[in-house]
Design a protein around this nucleic acid. Structure first.
Lengths: 338, 338
DNA sequence: CATACTACCGTAAACGTTTACGGAAAATCG
DNA sequence: CGATTTTCCGTAAACGTTTACGGTAGTATG
């Protein structure tokens, strides 16, 4: 005999009343509620998760799916931790818990998610690292699980999303480089099939076209989204038939390796080659300071949580005017690298 | 009527048999088992998490507790991602799932964990960022939850732990610096009450004492474990009455900021000041290459998982000779910074 | 052929909650 | 003072599983 029954016995009242008291239901005497609450905290009683969610049909946990392994999406621990922190502050207000669903690098993400939702592990999920076509969207839609994605996709099932403004980034960066006379601009496109890469490259091409410039295929550098990947790009740059005079990268992690690689081949960022990237804690102290796009990750997390809640039936009333889809703006920070 | 009952109806057999078939129990005809399995995968049936764990008393999930927020514990950017990946590969063999329990920066870690265990959310947990005294240990011991810690603590309830060999690191680094003539050696001690800082500083002092040297209080530099924190240390170094000729840091993230800060005050790592640190993806491409200690994070994760399983009643038989406590060795990689 | 065993399967009870329902006492009203 | 409402609480049924138990065939054994 454990759990609520024990507590009820101890207080000599029925388990029904105890449950009602703890859950803040109306029809329970204030005095008894006080007693119950007091006893619960003193004995350290917390309702069992399984029993509760079995009965209620919901678990009270929100899952943030992410793939583990060193080279994921080019986002590291700090990126997600900052976003998480924002998400948490909103969810905590509704007594919801955030957990990270960790899909290992040797599991199929789609199958993993399938298992998670079928088990009824989480009430709603947040997806990141969205691919150009992403079967996970359809899976969740089919199972009627509320979700929001950090990133867009060609696949669209009407769910809310928030995505960094990679197109705006391309727009500003390329425009700026062209204005200052660059004719041969290179792009670093992280390996994988992430949607953001497509958006970024495509828009860049458009902007170039407006200026009667074109993006040479040899100036699209593909690399694994890691420091090492960036290092490798330097060599690729040297091997070009006509060397680009500027490079834009959509990824945070690549840049430190790139700087080092360039230096080794005798190209000085900001002098011999212009570089524009994304802000990150590591990029913050690069030597010719990086011209980069910045954003508040915590705020991003907050919006993400609000967007998610706005599609959850039990909570949507609290967020009547939450925007469903949001292209998250980034600010350009002037640096010496461009 | 959903779940297993539906599946049983569909197959026209009892739910008991279906459950037995799915769980690989012995007394079920191979032919019916095949039918059940086939139907289950085809209809996408997976046992409901709540129902299952309510009945079984265990959830099949392992929690890795970590605190969110931008400044984690000073681990490198892909530190946890790599460790997770290792943990997963082991857990997957036992059909256990790993989730990250995210404690936000404005929650009390002890209270958070209390809630998690009382709810019966996870069968076992992994703790990181262990403090000098850590109440979480006692909490888990009291509730009889199997756990392992990544990091030691003064608090010891007999649980297994794995910890990086910070003492060995101090030993090798200090010894090496003294041998090459350094008399004034500084230490960077990350803010907070993490156990590793104490171990590191204490052992360093011992080694210095062996050589009749002492650690001047002004040479213990405290800083927030982040790039910015490292940057600030440079100024601290300049403000010293007698400037240290070498600095050892136990932390991965600080070093990039430190390099930049030193450069600004005109100190060249490896020439004007020796630096020894920890390897990380970001530190990998520093300009005077960093002399650092390295380890395989994935292997660390694997050992962590094995250590945990060895104290879980249902699994311990599979890991009879898992070492309970392990000081994880690190290799010194020669760089130009020392 | 009677008996004992085996192989398989159905039944039903549990796991710890929440909540609809009903009922007793107290309070209010006419 | 009877009738009606309100306030509070106990009862019991669900939620979806797993598993101990028992039972019915079929098969082997003597």
């Amino acid at each position: 005999m454990k759990g609520i029954r024990q507590l009820a016995n101890y207080l000599d009242i029925s388990i029904g009343t105890v449950s009602r008291a703890l859950n803040g239901k109306a029809d329970v005497n204030e005095e008894t509620r006080r007693r119950v609450l007091e006893a619960a905290t003193r004995l350290g009683y917390v309702a069992n998760q399984s029993g509760r969610s079995l009965r209620k049909g919901s678990t009270g946990v929100i899952g943030f799916m992410m793939q583990t392994g060193p080279e994921i999406t080019g986002q590291g621990d700090t990126f997600f931790m900052s976003v998480f922190d924002g998400v948490q502050t909103v969810l905590a207000r509704h007594k919801l818990d955030l957990v990270a669903l960790l899909c290992s690098s040797d599991q199929d993400p789609d199958a993993y998610l399938q298992r998670v939702v079928a088990r009824g592990f989480a009430d709603a999920v947040i997806l990141s690292a969205t691919r150009l076509h992403d079967a996970r969207f359809e899976l969740l839609a089919r199972h009627n699980i509320p979700f929001i994605t950090l990133g867009r996709s060609q696949t669209d099932v009407g769910q809310p999303w928030i995505d960094l403004d990679f197109e705006g980034m391309a727009e500003v960066a390329i425009e700026r480089l062209v204005k200052s006379g660059h004719q041969h601009i290179g792009l670093i496109w992280p390996n994988g099939d992430l949607n953001l890469g497509h958006l970024f490259v495509h828009r860049s091409q458009e902007v170039l076209a407006r200026h009667n410039l074109s993006l040479s295929p040899e100036h699209i550098f593909r690399a694994t989204p890691s420091e090492t990947g960036g290092y490798g790009v330097a060599r690729q740059i040297m091997d070009c038939e006509t060397r680009p005079t500027a490079v834009v990268l959509v990824n945070e992690t690549l840049v430190t390796g790139l700087y080092r690689g360039l230096e080794e081949v005798g190209l000085m960022p900001g002098k011999d080659i212009a570089i524009i990237g994304r802000q990150s804690p590591q990029a913050q102290f690069l030597k010719p300071s990086l011209t980069c796009f910045s954003l508040s990750l915590r705020d991003l997390g907050i919006s993400l949580a609000e967007g998610l809640l706005s599609v959850m039936p039990e909570y949507k009333l609290h967020y009547p005017d939450a925007v469903k889809r949001l292209v998250w703006p980034m600010d350009l920070i002037e640096g010496e690298s461009s």
